[in-house]
């Protein structure tokens, strides 16, 4: 009885007076709409202007000769061949080094490591490493690979340094891909008498592969774009000859582009734009492959 009466007398049983102000509310959402549109226009506009500028000054120089000629002191004889080959070498070698290390670390962390404080410590460190400025990896590479291990300013030293830069990316992406494999597959496999490793090799890795590859492609595109660590270990700016092997000196596209833009002649700035087009094209291609793989991953189960 008492409860019933108190319900009757509560505030919801009175007539509440609502005074919405439609104009003010509409105005506020309109202002917000304008602001967010403006933000998009500024961001996209800058990008479009940048790309347009590069395309306009670079396209006339873009031809087969440009791709197959070495660098030169004369802009109309300079090409990107050496730097392009250097970039491809770097990228391939970086992935060859970082992929097994990264994937194995991810497997260890996801499938074997317990949840104790050492694992936590490793985890925190990997996440922090991803945020370390790459020039610092360059300093490490300079001391460790170039000097102590005596590799000199070689592709190998560069790739090892770059592998350190991209390792956290690969580990984090691979862990996510491995974690996304449903537990039910692991249990089904183990219940048949498979060992842990048989389960990982036959089920976890194959199902996680698209995600792992995506991570590695993103790592590869990072490796292509990074310049600072390579400058730190002393990759050269002017290299007129193709590298003979991975212990040879080298240059890469971003360094070549940087070198050209710092020259006084106008033509060098234009061929730098042409170089940028090639670099952007490669990056775009890699990212497209990554997106396709990711789409495939989502279809899986």
């Amino acid at each position: 009885m008492a409860a019933e009466q108190s319900v009757k007398r509560d505030i919801l049983s009175q007539d509440l007076e609502f005074r919405p102000s439609p104009q003010a509310r509409r105005l506020r959402s309109f202002i917000f709409l304008i602001l967010s549109n403006l933000a998009v226009i500024i961001a996209l506009g800058t990008l479009i202007i940048l790309i347009a500028d590069v395309l306009i000054s670079g396209t006339p120089w873009l031809n087969l000769d440009f791709l197959t000629r070495a660098d030169s002191r004369f802009p109309n004889r300079a090409g990107i061949q050496v730097a392009l080959v250097g970039t491809l070498y770097m990228m391939a070698l970086t992935i060859v080094i970082a992929l097994p290390l990264g994937v194995m670390s991810a497997i260890y962390l996801e499938e074997y490591a317990g949840k104790d404080w050492t694992t936590q410590l490793i985890e925190v460190n990997i996440n922090n490493l991803a945020a370390v400025p790459s020039v610092i990896y360059g300093l490490l590479g300079l001391q460790l690979f170039v000097r102590w291990l005596g590799m000199g300013r070689s592709i190998l030293a560069g790739a090892l340094t770059m592998a350190l830069v991209v390792l956290p990316i690969i580990i984090v992406a691979s862990r996510e891909a491995i974690r996304a494999v449903p537990q039910s597959f692991r249990e089904a496999s183990l219940a048949l008498g498979a060992t842990r490793w048989q389960t990982i090799w036959n089920h976890v890795l194959p199902y996680a592969l698209p995600g792992i590859l995506t991570g590695n492609i993103l790592a590869a595109s990072r490796a292509i774009g990074e310049t600072a660590p390579l400058i730190t270990i002393g990759a050269l700016t002017f290299v007129p000859f193709l590298p003979r092997d991975i212990l040879d000196r080298f240059t890469v596209l971003p360094i070549l582009i940087f070198n050209w833009t710092s020259k006084p002649q106008r033509e060098f700035h234009d061929i730098a734009a042409a170089g940028i087009i090639v670099l952007l094209g490669t990056l775009l291609l890699l990212n497209a492959v990554a997106v396709l793989l990711r789409a495939k991953l989502q279809k899986r189960y």
Partner: peptide, 19 residues
Amino acid sequence: VVDVRRRIGMVFQKPNPFP
């Protein structure tokens, strides 16, 4: 354990064939 699991099989609540 591996041998135990081969000789004592299991069928789960949610059908879980491998893909």
